[in-house]
Design a protein around this nucleic acid. Structure first.
Length: 655
DNA sequence: CTAGGGTTAG
């Protein structure tokens, strides 16, 4: 009978009369419909709800949500059913009630999810959500954990300023911002790579007299590792112990990861061995710990040790996971052992771990690097058949693979295809294409691509600008390079070391010695310079015949130590050879060995080419033998063109 | 919370 009122014909009439009835006294029409809605929700009669949902008012919805506070699952079901409707869209309050209920039930995941929905799909600002949450605080019993959830929702959806705004506002209104919320924000700031801001926020937090907990300390360790300040990270660890805070495995993992990133594998292993002692026996390594070490060794090309760690891990009863194998597979692939990588993949499948996108990405990348386009095609179709979704990494890998194998136009077509299908695009992919367009002497095409990024709503990053600048510098178009540089400054992007080095290289190639020197002085003032900077300048001095300056520079580079690398010696050897000073050049080769800077194929080519121009075949062969005996891998092109012919020639003499 | 895959310099 009552339900008959809601047949589609009479519904509108009813709703209209509802507004009328609002003014009149008991029992108000809202009361009636409220009761009807509640009864139907209790009986899960969704059809009824679906029929009326579009005409439910905010206040009524709020009442309904409050009524069902103690049945969170039912409430969630109601919300999900009518969530897409306009009524609920406008009812920020009811959603906030639901959020409070979820937080009360410690269902933080759902609460965060609802908040992200409000901000990302429904367009509410973080501060609007905050205000609504505060307004509904009085009717709900929820604690300030709801604010933690809001900050988490902001950081998870990338709203950095939103999250910080919420923290500020809460402090202004005298609400308590928990240490968890601070930690979450600090973690987010680190993840987006803003270490400087991390320390600012940390100092701010400390100024409000917060006490760091174990997670805060872990974040400090992480930040210091990011800055390659390992010993400071370790001392933070001890400071934590002194405070009586018990360490957890995460802190150790961060230290070990930091040591691996700083290529100090001995330290990483030492830390692994000392986890027990340093934690008073309460912490033991987990899969992450071992994975960090395995990755460290893989990146150093020490695959036997990496695999030994895998064995040790199994021995210690720590189960290897997909990341363990993905790391090793990539390690083998990047060091040229694709067959081994496939063997490991088979083994992994036998251990009932299914290869994921990351594993496919590694294989595809390294197959492309080997020029095995057919292999790539097989893997890509395999991925499709197994419904393993490609991601933005896959796209970049394909684009780069195509470019590298000479199909820049195919890569561009692939890119347009992605755009057409509205598939994920990022700056990374554009950077690859821009780079190859520049390399194929098409800076104007690269410029077009850069402009198209703005149209697609993608923000070019430092690498994008750096790649463009380098492209123009290499093409000798310094004015265009300068234009890109100023464009970059205009959008508040700071130049980095790579960009300065590119500009310096351009200036040196132009033989603008004064400008080059000026730039280097400026870089020194900003404390932004490295071996590349000095190598570029050194090369520039030699090219312009400034021999004295070059040698003086070399001397001061050696004094500094860290400014000298293989490239430095290659440059020196090249010019010594050009001047006919072969004995001096060879002296530098032995210095290279003694400094653990093993000559590479460029050293080989430089020496062999120069020697063959001016000296006898015997000397060329002697040099070749000497280098090979010392473990230098010859450049195959130089060997075929220069050394191999003279070997057969001299061999003929002895016949 | 921490670990794996893609971009720039000589």
């Amino acid at each position: 009978m009552f339900l008959g009122l809601f047949s589609s014909k009479s519904r509108n009439l009813f709703v209209r009369s509802l507004h009328f009835a609002k003014q009149s006294t008991r029992p108000s029409a809202e009361d009636i419909i409220f009761k009807a809605v509640c009864v139907n929700i209790r009986q899960k009669k969704w059809k009824f709800l679906d029929q009326v949902s579009s005409s439910l008012t905010n206040s009524l919805l709020s009442r309904v949500f409050l009524e069902f506070q103690s049945s969170p699952q039912l409430l969630l079901e109601v919300y999900r059913r009518i969530g897409g409707q306009k009524a609920i869209l406008d009812s920020l309050e009811s959603c906030c009630i639901l959020i409070h209920v979820m937080v009360d039930r410690r269902n933080y995941g759902e609460a965060v999810c609802l908040m992200k929905e409000l901000m990302m799909s429904k367009g509410y600002l973080p501060l609007e959500v905050l205000e609504a949450l505060i307004n509904s605080l009085s009717v709900c019993s929820s604690s300030s954990a709801v604010f933690d959830a809001l900050i988490r929702a902001c950081t998870q959806s990338g709203a950095t300023e939103g999250a910080y705004g919420v923290i500020k506002k809460l402090r202004m209104e005298n609400y308590w911002v928990s240490i968890h919320a601070w930690n979450n924000f600090l973690n987010h700031v680190l993840k987006i790579g803003e270490v400087g801001r991390f320390w600012m926020v940390y100092r701010e937090m400390i100024s409000y007299e917060y006490y760091e907990n174990v997670n805060t300390f872990n974040l400090l360790i992480y930040a210091l590792c990011e800055e390659c300040k390992l010993s400071e990270a370790i001392s933070v660890f001890y400071r934590m112990l002194k405070r009586g805070i018990l360490p957890n495995v995460v802190g150790f993992n961060m230290l070990i990861h930091g040591a691996c990133c700083a290529k100090d594998l001995d330290l990483a292993v030492k830390l692994l061995k000392k986890i027990g002692a340093m934690s008073g026996g309460i912490v033991s390594p987990n899969a992450v710990t071992y994975n960090c070490l395995i990755n460290g060794y893989c990146k150093q090309g020490k695959l036997e040790i990496a695999e030994r760690i895998l064995d040790e891990m199994i021995e210690m009863d720590v189960k290897p996971n997909i990341r363990t194998y993905a790391t090793l597979i990539d390690g083998y692939s990047r060091n040229g052992y694709l067959e081994e990588a496939f063997r490991l993949c088979h083994y992994m499948v036998e251990s009932e771990l299914i290869p994921n996108t990351v594993v496919y990405n590694s294989f595809i990348h390294w197959l492309y690097m080997e020029g095995d386009i057919g292999g790539v095609a097989l893997l890509l179709s395999d991925m499709m058949m197994k419904y393993i979704p490609p991601d933005r990494f896959t796209h970049s890998i394909i684009a780069k693979g195509l470019c590298r194998n000479g199909h820049v136009n195919e890569a561009l077509k692939f890119h347009s295809w992605l755009a057409e299908k509205n598939l994920v695009e990022d700056a990374f992919l554009h950077n690859i294409l821009i780079n190859y367009l520049c390399r194929t002497n098409n800076p104007s095409g690269a410029k077009q691509l850069l402009c198209s990024m703005f149209v697609r709503g993608l923000i070019p990053d430092q690498v994008t600008y750096g790649t463009m600048i380098d492209g123009y510098c290499k093409a000798g178009e310094m004015e265009s390079a300068a234009k890109v540089y100023t464009d970059m400054i205009k959008v508040d992007k700071n130049p980095n070391l790579v960009i300065f080095n590119s500009l310096l290289d351009g200036l040196c190639k132009e033989e603008s010695v004064d400008c080059s020197r000026f730039l280097v002085d400026e870089m020194k003032r900003l404390n932004m310079y490295d071996a590349v900077t000095y190598n570029t300048l050194l090369n520039g001095y030699f090219r312009t015949g400034m021999i004295k300056e070059a040698f003086d520079l070399f001397t001061s580079m050696r004094k500094a130590g860290f400014l000298v690398n293989k490239v430095t010696y290659n440059i020196m050897i090249n010019f010594l050879c050009k001047f006919g000073l072969f004995e001096h050049a060879k002296e530098l080769v032995s210095i290279m060995f003694s400094q653990d800077l093993a000559p590479d194929f460029i050293t080989y080519t430089t020496l062999v080419t120069n020697l063959s121009n001016k000296r006898s075949s015997e000397e060329v062969i002697k040099l070749h033998d000497y280098l090979v005996l010392q473990g230098v891998i010859p450049d195959s092109q130089s060997y075929e063109a220069i050394v191999s012919p003279v070997i057969t020639e001299t061999a003929g003499e002895f016949e």
